[in-house]
Amino acid sequence: MTHDAHTDPGHGGGHATSYRQYIMTWCWLLVMTLLALGIGYAPVPEGIKGMLLVAVTLAKIFLIASIFMHLKFEKMNLVMLTFSPLVLSVILFFMTFGDAAGSATHIIETHPSYDERSVPAHEGGAAGAEHKK
């Protein structure tokens, strides 16, 4: 009955294979992180940006859960259980979305960038300027 007793395909059959799989997963996660970063900076409408970021995030979660957390090797009962927070989150989102969307103005304020703020104002940077507000 203990987990130690059964053969886990995720760990058995040579470490080289497992390591390769973990390293490949790591590489994909880094690529998708850079992709998400690119989407964050892309000059696209907020709605489209949101959908693209949801897609990339779900792909990353899928990789982490299936490979690193070994859900790929677990029984379907457990896998289905792990979907419950996602399903409940979607319900909660749509419960609040109606009210939020009705009052949104979507004004995105621009400010001096982090790097500009790091330079003191007397040296020509914007540090301290934002405190005037």
Partner: peptide, 11 residues
Amino acid sequence: MTSPSWPKQTE
């Protein structure tokens, strides 16, 4: 979404 404005996080 209910705030009148929001800072640009990447900045």
